[in-house]
Amino acid sequence: MALIILAACNQPGNSQPALVQLDPARIGHYGFGSVAKADEIAGWNIDIRPDGKGLPEGQGSVEDGEWIYEAQCAECHGSFGEGVGRFPVLAGGMDSLRDFRPTKTIGSYWPYTSTLYDYIYRAMPFTQPQSLSVDETYAVTAYVLYLNDLVGDDFELNQHNLANIPLPNRAGFTRDPRPDVANIRCMENCRDPAKIKILSETLPSVQQDYTSGIEPASTKANAGQSIYTQACKLCHESGLAGAPVHGEKDQWETRIAQGLDKLVSRAITGFTGDSGVMPPKGGFTQLSDEEIRLAVTYMVESVP
């Protein structure tokens, strides 16, 4: 086993860990597994460092990147990198880091260009990670740099110039100085009771609006899904109170056969059937009839 060297003094206030010193004589001691071959490593060796180490041979232009970006990225990130809904904003936000609500983008916050290439190749597009080729990744990276006004529209990015493109906030990062606060363990008369004021409070009856931060849905299907999640899912996901389970074909077929209008009307006014009970609007009577229709439509359309 590895040689354990205990920290000289494990006194309180000194959380010095017990360090392990590795014994070179024990390399391959167990011999389990197989030695990794170069071609096996190559398929997974995707990481890029700020100094450009790891960048594969290739290139891509802002012009090529625009086409790929519009087709594969803009749906979530917006045509100008402004972000759709709560998906990340990629551009803008310059000099906003001291604002009450900073906008942290590649241009305003990120320290290294390499991170952009690495992340796009590793994890994007969101629904198809690692589907972009090397050249496509260079092109999209170049286009996002262009959206941040960091390169011109005729720019071409490659493995040689990428690490030399500095991002504006490169010097904005510091190492961890914690512990950075020093409270004391006072037990009595620690503060003046008269000076205690409640600065903020949530409602004690747990009325938090779960949807307050969601952007208005842009399509009917999304709106229906959103209402479903807020109001219908509690019962229709589990079948509680005899509710037909969302997406379960055999539970929906006979209902759908009765027509959407009938289902919507029963959902609005309430209905007691042989197998369960649908309260009027599922109990969420603040919802409009149209919102109920959207939610029912969503559930009906979810049946395979």
């Binding site: 880091l97 001291r98 900073p102 942290k104 590649i106 916050y109 990120w110 320290p111 290294y112 991170t115 992340y119 904005g172 990062f173 510091t174 190492r175 961890d176 100085p177």
Partner: peptide, 16 residues
């Protein structure tokens, strides 16, 4: 870098 860094009031950010 983009995430899991701590932005301070002065606009600097702590990493790692």
């Amino acid at each position: 870098t983009s995430k899991y860094t701590d932005l301070m009031a002065d606009g600097s950010a702590r990493e790692f």
